[in-house]
Design a protein around this nucleic acid. Structure first.
Lengths: 196, 196
DNA sequence: CCATTTCTGGACCAGAAGGTCCATAACTTC
DNA sequence: GAAGTTATGGACCTTCTGGTCCAGAAATGG
């Protein structure tokens, strides 16, 4: 078995670079050129390795999903309580309002849900999986919060988790619309009221 | 003063048609062809009357803003109380989850905030105006709700109005991600808890 | 019925889109 | 070092992009 010519680039890094581009620019607005440049490879290598724009995008979403999951688990670990974790998660989104308008990228998953989920079934599936993963994770956090007594038991954990995802999406949208940080922090404060 | 050749199309209808296309497909994914076909005019008429894709888009957003404002004012008038109005507004968004995936268009304003507000200052301005208008309208509704005793006075009306916009955006996003109606109704129920 | 004004169809454009192909380069194994 | 395998650069292709231009059509007032 021969190995053939070795890759001239790092597939992992290339994928990450592509993810960043899609995240910043959105799917439609991202051109092949943008991707090739950011990934540092030539057209033929691109098609050989990733198949095409859409296939690459699907892999980027999957990767983003993993990353975001890890990030949240880490945040949960670093938080003193589940309630604190939730608060910090929302405030992190609010903090994006400190950046200049062009740097407010939001969440790749939410952006994609808004931009593409209606047009392409494959992408919709990947987005849906992402939301499900997020929901499962938040469910666990909410349950812990309920056990700790910091979150109401009047509402099912599933419903509260759904509410948190929705709130997150709303906050991202408001930030993108150009709101300043204080306004978003106010929204976070009201959002937390619903947790009882 | 001579009048010249009359228009072969209805400018209002053409604008509405364009708005529908942008609403369904998003800005980037909409091509000139799509627009010309939906509007029923030729390229030269298009450029003469509307200037270009982006200029038309700005006008469509402005128009959407008006329409949505009127719609909400009407809903407010048809509602027995401000609280009921808010509830109905959120449930209307939830009801979109009854439609097939491809028909979940969301809100043009929110979609545009997500897709374009980072890339183009003019569009960002239009979006921002739209959010401000919505905020002002909801502020009034919240104040009425507070006077009626159905909404907490512990939180400023401005903050609650911001929260409602955010919630609306979140719900639209969740619907786009493919959630079923019951899940969204649960989110609405939790959302309303924060109003106290 | 002519001058003027305005609108319209379609030809035309340069550039960019995503994608394919192939000759060649760079490895490994024997 | 030859054979086998894989990766690369770049030429090439088709289709479509948003946009311009102009000759002529359709109305007006005089």
């Amino acid at each position: 078995m021969s190995m053939g010519r070795p890759l001239a680039y790092d597939p992992e890094k290339a994928l990450d670079a592509a993810m960043q581009v899609f995240w910043s620019r959105g799917y439609e607005a991202t051109t092949l050129q943008d991707l090739l440049q950011a990934m540092g490879l030539s057209k033929s290598s691109f098609y050989q390795a990733f198949g095409g724009k859409k296939e690459l995008f699907l892999r980027c979403i999957a990767r983003y999903r993993e990353k975001i999951g890890q990030g949240l688990i880490e945040l949960l670990g670093n938080s003193g309580s589940a309630r604190e974790f939730i608060e910090r998660m929302l405030l992190n989104s609010a903090a994006e309002a400190r950046r200049p308008n062009e740097a407010r990228r939001g969440c790749l998953l939410m952006n994609t849900a808004t931009e593409c989920a209606q047009k392409d079934g494959d992408i919709a599936g990947e987005v849906s999986s992402g939301f499900d993963g997020l929901h499962a994770l938040l469910c666990r956090a909410v349950r812990r919060g309920q056990e700790e007594g910091a979150i109401t038991r009047e509402v099912e954990a599933e419903a509260l988790a759904g509410y948190l995802i929705s709130s997150l999406g709303g906050i991202k949208t408001v930030v993108k619309s150009g709101a300043d940080e204080q306004r978003v922090r106010d929204i976070v404060a009201v959002t937390l009221r619903a947790l009882g």
